[in-house]
Design a protein around this nucleic acid. Structure first.
Lengths: 157, 157
DNA sequence: GATAAAATCACCCGAAAGTATGAGGGTAAA
DNA sequence: TTTACCCTCATACTTTCGGGTGATTTTATC
């Protein structure tokens, strides 16, 4: 019972005792300064300052921090009007295989060969071979060109 | 208004009153065991209480609220009107410079850094610096990702 | 079953891309 | 004037890409 109370109000008790101590300190100080007639105002001022600071400190310790929520709208763009239809004619013209088209799509998403390999559960070297064939069939030199051309031809969204 | 204040600072008031009680208890103890004139201590106690409360109130007024940012994703749809309109809002959001946007456009056309440099009459190293800044500002790692994101955001056709 | 195409993987090598850092000149805002 | 970008270029280094070659296995197809 008692222990529980102490445990639960430990901080409160601590602050209470702390203040008691401060008061005694002040009283003790008073004994030393009481001989001076004009120390009273200074003493009061000191008490005011000290306890104001104590109040500020206490507030920081005891109050929950204020939280201000700011909502930021993140805008995503998308075009729903144009549903992608694969241009089968152009696809056939390139002679692209199913797997190669798959690799090409992932390329267009900005994945590296390494990442594409991981996504398709094959090795990096395999992806290299695929991409080489893709560049051949699309008659380009770089993946960026391949992606650009593939989009233009309607091979990928 | 008053009720609202009380509700919001309930804990503060509680601790204030608690401290007041402690002070009076202290003074009462002194009355029983000491023979001094205690009006002075009571006065000091009152000042202490008042200024502690003032400090707490001040702290509440002065503390800046923590800002918590909540990102809400909002999807907008582009007109499939085929005519490219630069999304100035997103462009400003990226903080992309004119030159950087220029480089990004040529990137999207599948040009190599070397070719972009030749097109813009600057050195390869300059293009590398530009592209590095582009990747930073667009928060991507590769040119293919940059192109993909730029198209999605309406920064380039 | 033989053949062809597709898919998988490996190795080497050079080119290109990307990272990190510094630096100098220009322009515009504070 | 200082500050802050922007544009330019450079060096050095690492990683990725792409070309070339060859090989094995799987999958259609006749």
């Amino acid at each position: 019972m008692g222990n529980h109370f102490i445990a639960k109000n430990k901080t409160n008790l601590f602050y209470g005792l702390l203040m008691g101590g401060l008061l005694f300190l002040l009283n003790w100080l008073e004994l030393r300064f009481v001989i001076f007639d004009h120390s009273f105002e200074i003493y009061i001022g000191a008490v005011a300052v000290i306890f104001t600071l104590l109040g500020i400190w206490l507030a920081g310790k005891l109050t929950r921090p204020k939280v201000e929520t700011v909502v930021v709208e993140k805008i995503l763009y998308n075009e729903p009007g144009s549903v992608f239809v694969l241009n089968e004619k152009e696809l056939a013209a390139t002679g692209m295989s199913k797997r190669e088209l798959e690799v090409l799509q992932l390329m267009a998403e900005g994945l590296s060969n390494q990442e594409i390999g991981a996504r398709l559960y094959v090795s990096l070297n395999t992806i290299k071979t695929h991409s080489a064939r893709i560049f051949e069939k699309m008659e380009v030199q770089r993946r960026t060109q391949a992606v650009e051309k593939a989009k233009r031809l309607g091979l990928i969204p």
